[in-house]
Amino acid sequence: MIVVTGATGNVGRALVTQLTAEQAPVRGLTRSPERAGLPAAAQVARFDLSGDQPEPADLAPLLDGATGLFLHLQAVGTHTEALLEAARAGGVQHVTVLSSGTVQDGADTSHPLYVAHAELEASVTASGLAHTFLRPNAFATNSLQWAPQIRVGDTVRGPFPGAVTAPIHEADIAAVAARTFLDDGHQGAVHRLTGPEAVTTEEQIHIIGATLGRTLRFIDVPPEEVGPDLFPHVPPQILPALLASFAESVGVAPEITTTVEAVTGKPARTFAQWAQDHKNDFRP
């Protein structure tokens, strides 16, 4: 049994879907099981972060019969330590962590994304459980931040049109995660994950437009004028650091890895493929 935290999130849902397709037993954890909409073959269990800090014994039923645990920081919040203790007590043999590409040698150790994910990795290491760390860079799903603008018009406002990334499809992150549970040889591994190609912010907008059969225009907004309305998925306290990262990526070739293909046997999906998969998200 593989337990997936954040089972209704972008990566978690893809992972549950892929694991059930391979007939692996899966239990998806979510705040609202009644609205999960996960594959019928998956078990679904409630994991609510809004209550008091749980004891490991309170979480034990969630790990009953589990051998693997997919751990996503946003999905576990401050419950990480209790969940890991419950996992260890319940016989979990392997934890795969959705970490961040910000965790690397020479990184800005004050960056909030680095701090949060480095602490998560440290907690898993200290637990003594066998583990694999997935460190994706830019997520293609971050482009959904533009969906509200695209649904109502043909212009998109935002900063740094020349910022360059290699955005990765969430299904590719999930595919690598699935192999860490289903195949041998991933214990102790650190997998850095990217998409297969470099694209600028403005190019992403044009690709989405082409997928929709529309011509979209990008309007450059100075970073000092950027507010939370343009990045609704980003916690306000993290936005300044994120904008600084964007500024540093303008005109700079991003890291591109071949890890997805090496692990899964299939090449990473392009941003155009991601846009095609998500075109309904940008339609009125």
Rank of each mutant, 00 (worst) to 15 (best):
V4I: 10
T5M: 09
G9S: 09
N10P: 04
V16C: 05
T20C: 03
T20A: 03
P25A: 07
R35C: 00
R35H: 13
A42H: 09
Q43D: 15
A45F: 08
P56I: 07
P56L: 13
A60Q: 14
A60Y: 03
T67V: 14
L71S: 00
H72N: 15
G77M: 10
G77R: 08
E81P: 01
A82T: 11
E85D: 06
A89T: 09
V92G: 00
V92C: 00
Q93C: 04
S100A: 12
Q104T: 13
G106E: 05
H111L: 11
A116V: 03
L129F: 02
A130L: 03
P136E: 04
N142R: 02
N142C: 11
Q145Y: 03
Q145D: 14
R151Y: 02
V152Q: 10
D154P: 07
D154M: 02
G158R: 00
P159R: 01
E170R: 12
A171Y: 07
A175P: 09
R179H: 09
G185I: 12
L193A: 14
L193G: 15
A198K: 13
V199R: 11
T200Y: 02
E203V: 00
I219R: 15
I219K: 14
D220Q: 15
D220E: 14
E224R: 15
V234S: 04
L239F: 03
P240Q: 08
L242E: 15
S249V: 05
G251R: 08
A253K: 07
A253Y: 07
T258P: 11
A268R: 08
R269A: 13
Q276W: 04
N280E: 14
F282E: 05
P284R: 15
